[in-house]
Amino acid sequence: MSGITDEKTVSITVEFSGGLELLFDNERKLSLALPSRDENGATSNIAYLVRYLCETTMKDPRKDLFVLDGTVRPGILVLINDADWELEGEDQYELQANDNILFVSTLHGG
């Protein structure tokens, strides 16, 4: 809760599962202080979060396994506070403090 006193950032939790964590140093859960405004000064949304993750968090060079054609790769589910992102406006959903964003891959095998 202390993180949100800074107006410049929004504190959120990002989780990876279904094999996607393999692309993020086997990190399953991240606490992020995401800039509350994107490059153009608009309120940060999922699209910005995905760009941010690609540029700052992801060390694996295989970015195309996470993002394809500017959006989350088909076959990767995005849950915003446990709800399908399609119910929340997909990548246009504007992030709020303490949101939980889960990326689950359906592409990996057992």
Partner: peptide, 13 residues
């Protein structure tokens, strides 16, 4: 699996 909190493992060969 997610909503029932099932214990599964994903990997790539």
């Amino acid at each position: 699996a997610h909503h029932r909190n099932l214990d599964y493992f994903s990997t790539e060969c």
